[in-house]
Write a protein that binds this DNA or RNA. Sequence first.
DNA 1: CTGTTAGCGCGTTCAC
DNA 2: GTGAACGCGCTAACAG
Lengths: 353, 353
Amino acid sequence: MIAACWHSSGANDRLSPAVITIREVAQRAKVSVGTVSNVLAGSESVRPELRRRVEQAMRELDYQPNEIARSLKTRQTKTLGAVVSDLTNPFYPMLLRGAEDAALARGYLLFILNTDDRAELEQRALSLLRARKVDGILLVTTPGSDVESTLGPGFVPPVVFVDRTPSSPTADYIVTDNRRGARMCTNHLVSRGHRRIGFVSGSTELSTGRERLDGYLEVLRQAGIEPNPVFTRHGEFRLEPAYRITKELLLESSPPTAIFAANSLTGLGALKAIHELGLRCPQDISLAVFDDVPFADVIQPRLTSIAQPAYEMGRLGAEVLIARIEEKERSAPKRIELAPELNVRESTGPAPR
Amino acid sequence: MIAACWHSSGANDRLSPAVITIREVAQRAKVSVGTVSNVLAGSESVRPELRRRVEQAMRELDYQPNEIARSLKTRQTKTLGAVVSDLTNPFYPMLLRGAEDAALARGYLLFILNTDDRAELEQRALSLLRARKVDGILLVTTPGSDVESTLGPGFVPPVVFVDRTPSSPTADYIVTDNRRGARMCTNHLVSRGHRRIGFVSGSTELSTGRERLDGYLEVLRQAGIEPNPVFTRHGEFRLEPAYRITKELLLESSPPTAIFAANSLTGLGALKAIHELGLRCPQDISLAVFDDVPFADVIQPRLTSIAQPAYEMGRLGAEVLIARIEEKERSAPKRIELAPELNVRESTGPAPR
DNA sequence: CTGTTAGCGCGTTCAC
DNA sequence: GTGAACGCGCTAACAG
């Protein structure tokens, strides 16, 4: 009787030794499947006696509810998708830890996918997630992507943008106040007497890239410094390009006395260039970076940086997304800007005179 | 007619605007659902004329097969679980990129979960994944975990261990040859004349921790150096503890002239301690670390390190796992050890005399 | 309060 | 070659 659930229909029967269904439980507890389902749902309206019998049967059979079958019926899978640009960019793991914690707390699991900032990969990721019927998507969007075209104008499933703002104005998003962060950082440099400040940028096709650049330019103008176009270089948010262009920048006839790198990767690239040219930091050149990575506080010189609340961003993102999923009627889009923080360390000093 | 698929049964009906089923397609193409299913499966035995009509109907309706329903029938979800210790340890993102690439290439999606090396969280992760009916699990296992007790003696679903070897001898695993890597690294130090070599270890409850320690001790003995127990300190594979114990270590009356850190995080901790004590590296003290992280090559001094093929490990892990899932009859467990690589850079120099 | 039953969307027989 | 009918495991509606 107990072994009655063993099938022998061949190759794809991998799961069968453990395939105890609600029906077997019902049979063993001598109740109906409906009652078992009620017990599962924690319904109050089950006589304690029966509840006890059902629970015992479950234990004896090592019953495990099948979430897939449940999903088919309830039309929700209790899964989310998280689409990021690149997991090896140290910013995203922290964000994802936050998202995971919030998701698990609400009973959701997370599919994670990378896009390498390629629109076609974002497209693929979104449609894979939709086919898997995830209940919602956390998205670090990519330039040139068209989310609406693959998810439809209604955004099905719902999407919350994190880290970068969407092209669509009607969606939720959680981002850092990048302009403010860039202003804080540039201000710090200006206040130390720097007037020739280079900017190793990310892509201006990204909201983060644009806003950080804007903040930088804004402060320069306020300080009466005419922005020198030569000082703004395109670092693609990646280490290698940043390394190359910083080297070029520092080899100019009248090089900057300080460099502001648009994220941790470009900061590392800039640092490599500085070292390689035998420059001392901060005596010869100051360096400040957007993103506070674990090693910012460890490497020599310790890096002045703008810290983003990455964990918080992920946590909030997942929470907003789940609220959106579970809401009864559509509420107004949430637009959240998180406050960045300036950590002044040894990589920035007074401008050499 | 087209709008016939719109439901209006209330709150959980979020998906309904897009819920085109195989039935609607059949109706529109004026064929039976069986035929549509055959077209979907790419069966040859469908008249071209009908196939054309079906495909057109699919396009017109923007039909999207429901993977959930398919899973329920085929008893496979085309999803994998990846359970790692901590995403913010820079080793794992690379591993996961490899796993993702291999998985996507075979049509699988990846759930990712962290355990923070806590057995109860591993347990939870495994049972969540099993309830979601993932087809297989990639596992960076944790000390004190009991995989068999939550997945059963048969390992359902199948598990491939990565990075760390399992307690169970009958499972597949893909790891680095840690002992060899540690030997290479220690050998390098010994060959530069160091005889007092400190080891900032990870947990010896982990295979990686044990094996790296073993390799280190082995080389010392071969070189006729009596291992000094004081020189082996427990760094927990984390930055903070490593920082503290390295400081202690360097404050000994007769401190080591070289330090071997068991992974990148302990390496960073050790470096912080070295800087803080005002020691010069490598003149006063040499530092070598296990794990080659992006910044190993950037920070000053550039770090001598042991590189592990993390991407490859993830890729292979997913491939072995999928092979295991799809195999007709159980084959022998695969045990793969990947070769580490020594990168000699500036953080290691000759022993001071 | 409990049992029965009709689907959820798809794949898979079999008759035709 | 095609299509009707059944079942995967579960939930929910309804009858008792």
